[in-house]
């Protein structure tokens, strides 16, 4: 569980960084992602050296949560040349991601701790149901929006589809076929995005 929480927190921050830097100028985007990757690596090393993975996972989570508004403000200030569409959509989706991922994280932790202590789930069933419905709606929403903008911004769209697919896949684990299809499509989108980015980087240089 400790390692799972740590991995979850690291993946969350990495995904978030890719989300709010999507579409920015290559130098700016690569620099911020590399800097955050380096920071997370230091966290990870500290966690494995000291053996206090849960505390480090929470540290990472709170650093992400408290800094997210500044990330969005930084994106807004840095995205001067982007269209309003590309400036706004990631910001709105970013806000949604904060809420949903935060709820999922809190629910997982609380439920798990209580289950370990008392061998039963104490969160009321209807709360878990409401949480599941919210997560499902968000997951499907991400998938639909991702498919909708796949041609225009394939990289960002793939990230949305993967996030949505994983969310839906976790909730309805029996939906393996659509999950695999979504991931395959996302992989294609990422490949296409990589090619577009490479062309853009070459033209910038």
């Amino acid at each position: 569980m400790n390692t799972f929480l740590l991995r979850f927190a690291l993946a969350l921050v990495r995904s978030w960084t890719r989300l709010y830097t999507a579409g920015l100028a290559p130098t700016l985007r690569h620099a911020r992602r590399a800097e955050i990757d380096c920071d997370l690596w230091e966290h990870e090393r500290e966690a494995f050296d000291s053996g206090v993975r849960t505390r480090v996972a929470f540290d990472i989570f709170f650093r992400w949560l408290l800094g997210a508004p500044d990330d969005l403000a930084w994106r807004w200030a840095s995205a001067g040349q982007l269209t309003i569409w590309r400036k706004t959509v990631p910001v709105i989706l970013g806000g949604l991601t904060i809420c949903v991922a935060g709820m999922a994280f809190a629910a997982m932790v609380i439920d798990n701790i209580q289950y370990m202590q008392e061998s039963k789930h104490i969160i009321p069933g209807d709360v878990l149901m409401a949480l599941s419905i919210t997560l499902a709606a968000t997951g499907f929403g991400f998938i639909l929006i991702g498919f909708g903008i796949m041609k225009r911004v394939p990289g960002f769209a793939s990230l949305l589809v993967v996030t949505g697919s994983v969310t839906v896949g976790i909730l309805f684990f029996w939906l393996i076929a659509p999950l695999v299809a979504a991931v395959a499509l996302s992989a294609y989108g990422l490949y296409k995005a990589g090619r577009i980015r490479k062309q853009r980087d070459v033209s910038v240089v």
């Binding site: 921050v13 911020r32 800097e35 955050i36 380096c38 920071d39 230091e42 966290h43 540290d59 709170f62 650093r63 992400w64 949560l65 408290l66 800094g67 997210a68 508004p69 500044d70 990330d71 969005l72 403000a73 930084w74």
Partner: peptide, 25 residues
């Protein structure tokens, strides 16, 4: 970044490191 965050935390006896977004901004 991580080193300065740790140093700021230590100097200010803060409970946790400065948030990623706040620090790098």
């Amino acid at each position: 970044g991580f080193l300065i965050a740790k140093e700021v935390k230590k100097q200010e006896a803060a409970r946790r490191l400065t948030a990623h977004g706040t620090l790098y901004k």
